[in-house]
Amino acid sequence: MIEIDGIDAKLLRALARDANQSAGALGRRLGLSQPATWRRIRRLEETGVIRGRQLRLDAEKLGFGVTVFLGVKLALRGRVSLEDFERAVSAIPEVQTVEHVLGLYDYRLRVVARDLADFERVLRRRIMTLPGAGDVEANVLLSEERLPGPL
């Protein structure tokens, strides 16, 4: 584990709000020079604390009005490997996240679709035909109050 001081914590919070800020602008806000700020950012990237900067798209504005969380339990018969299932489900463009979880289901998927009919098509033709797919439970997202952010 890397040592994070107060300045690093402020830097991470500022980058989490807007990852496009320049090192100079961040430094001015934190009372650091641009080179000192850049060195801190590089150290956080090199140690893996910062794993990348992501672009967030508005799925609804792009025509994907439905988000569904699926709990997927792998079928016992056939004994498909976890890697085979993960590789197959990750290849489906509508599947946004694949999380291997402990509990009632083996996997939790976040799936986007244009509407419920489109989701049904994705579920029947793509997800349920995957190697090892067994029981599935769907939860339709009604609203999202908090987007993923800093820890």
Rank of each mutant, 00 (worst) to 15 (best):
E60W: 06
L74I: 11
E46Q: 15
R56S: 07
V80K: 10
R110Y: 01
I92Q: 06
V68A: 10
G132H: 02
R110P: 01
I7D: 02
G6A: 15
L104N: 01
T97Y: 05
V101W: 06
V111E: 01
G31M: 10
R40Y: 09
E45N: 02
L57G: 07
L11P: 01
V95D: 00
M1T: 10
R77I: 08
G65D: 09
P131R: 04
W38V: 02
E94H: 11
R146W: 06
P93Y: 05
R51S: 13
V98F: 10
S90C: 00
K61C: 00
T37V: 07
R87I: 00
L44E: 02
E120Y: 03
Q96K: 15
P150S: 00
L26T: 08
L123G: 02
G31D: 04
R28T: 07
V136Y: 05
A9F: 15
V140Y: 09
V140A: 13
A133S: 14
A113D: 01
L141W: 00
R56W: 09
P150W: 12
D84T: 15
K10Q: 15
R77M: 06
K10G: 04
N139M: 12
S90D: 02
R125V: 03
R124L: 08
R43M: 10
L74M: 15
L104E: 14
Y107R: 04
R40M: 05
T67Y: 01
L74S: 07
L44G: 06
V112C: 03
D115S: 11
R146H: 04
A91G: 15
I2Q: 11
A25R: 12
N20P: 00
K73N: 11
R126S: 09
L62W: 03
K73A: 13
R110E: 12
L82T: 10
L141P: 02
Q21P: 08
G48A: 09
L62E: 12
A14T: 06
E120T: 13
F119Q: 03
R56D: 01
D118K: 05
G24E: 08
I2H: 07
L57C: 04
K10S: 13
A16G: 14
E46D: 15
A75Q: 11
W38A: 14
L82I: 04
V136N: 04
L130E: 00
V122C: 02
A133M: 03
V101A: 09
A88E: 13
I127A: 07
E86I: 07
I4K: 13
G65W: 06
L62I: 06
L12M: 14
W38T: 04
G78A: 06
E3F: 14
T47H: 10
G48M: 07
R121I: 02
I4R: 07
R29N: 07
R79N: 13
G78R: 08
L32P: 05
V68M: 09
L123V: 01
R17N: 11
I127M: 10
L32T: 12
G78K: 05
R126V: 01
D118G: 07
L123K: 09
D8S: 02
R17L: 08
I41Q: 10
A59H: 03
Y105H: 14
S22E: 04
G71F: 06
P93A: 06
W38I: 01
